[in-house]
Nucleic acid binder design. Sequence first.
DNA 1: CTAAGCATACCGACTGGTTGGTATGCTTAG
DNA 2: CTAAGCATACCAACCAGTCGGTATGCTTAG
Lengths: 205, 205
Amino acid sequence: MPRDGAATKAKILEVAHELVLEYGFGGMSVDQVLTAAGITKGAFFHHFKSKIDLANALLARYVQMDDQLLHEQMARAESLSRDPLQQYLIFVGLLEEMSRGQSEPPPGCLIASYIYQLELFSAETKTAVISGFKEWERVLGEKLAAVFEKYPPRLPVSAKQIYDNLLALFEGGVILAKLYDKGDALAEQLGQHKNYIELLFQERD
Amino acid sequence: MPRDGAATKAKILEVAHELVLEYGFGGMSVDQVLTAAGITKGAFFHHFKSKIDLANALLARYVQMDDQLLHEQMARAESLSRDPLQQYLIFVGLLEEMSRGQSEPPPGCLIASYIYQLELFSAETKTAVISGFKEWERVLGEKLAAVFEKYPPRLPVSAKQIYDNLLALFEGGVILAKLYDKGDALAEQLGQHKNYIELLFQERD
DNA sequence: CTAAGCATACCGACTGGTTGGTATGCTTAG
DNA sequence: CTAAGCATACCAACCAGTCGGTATGCTTAG
């Protein structure tokens, strides 16, 4: 057994992430993490100075992976069309494609999980939760501003409302996927968002 | 001090409901409930045989209140128009009206909270969580079926997808309201759903 | 009317197990 | 040798739940 601290830490984060989505942070014990990761108390507290420290690390990891997904898929979308509206629709379509038909891993948003147990956390963690989607807001806000400049919406809506619509459908779609135990539920709602955007910016005939 | 067991039980349910939305069920201790309700262990375990029993009672209470809201507002909507599409839009509008500008009590859906800690619960509780929206699905499914019979949608969507869209926007909107600490976020997304429905069933000119 | 009998409502000390966290020392790679 | 990585043993605080007991008020027999 080689001694690779980074691998152990990664393993802890991986299993803890799943456990938080199943039991909630408050309902998950450190001992559960130890068992699932196949390690002992010593190893855990060598890598994390407290359970709260684990919570922060999990959140930071999640936000980072999430932002990476955003940038990757937006870059793909931008290379597939020159029109901002099409880029936005392709971006949402790529997210839809990714989430369709996948039941593994069981879905869940760490930020939503934390939001429903916010009082367990310290002020800094709360702040991190609240600003977890900042990058999405920035990138999609800019993209939608470009859309609005080029196309007039058929109803009076703001870019912020549309971004929030995507975000809400994402969070709600995840909950539906868990409720129905059917990964497609999220993809379906991303599809509805695409429908809405299409209808909203469709030219009148 | 009069002896009113029902009042004590109601008080426990009320404060426990709030605590669950703030700490999560697993992160909330019975002692916290005792303090918040101003009672003692004896009183609590007189009314609930276990903490899990409280979880079930909270869920049953929530679903019942939720169903009542559904029936009340749908009855209002049905008395305000004869057209199924208008009834549906009015219904959503009434929900929007109710949620706008209210920051008290802090928002939250007990079903969403439970879904994010599902493994804490027994099989029966899980079943109750999953079927928590059954009545909404039935009532809105019927209403939307009537809409589809009368109006052709401009895009190929199903009644189930539309009902899920409302549900997802509700759950997502609640999460946004918590994230932004702004009660209007939910109302705004219900407004977007109305927009979507309007555009979807609008006659071509 | 009255008092015995009893059920409901509640109190708070207590218990055994679990919690997050610590102290200490062994192992192993460099 | 050194230090990072990790295991074991342990601790105090807290957890859900129990239990013996008390207070209150309703029912009913005399």
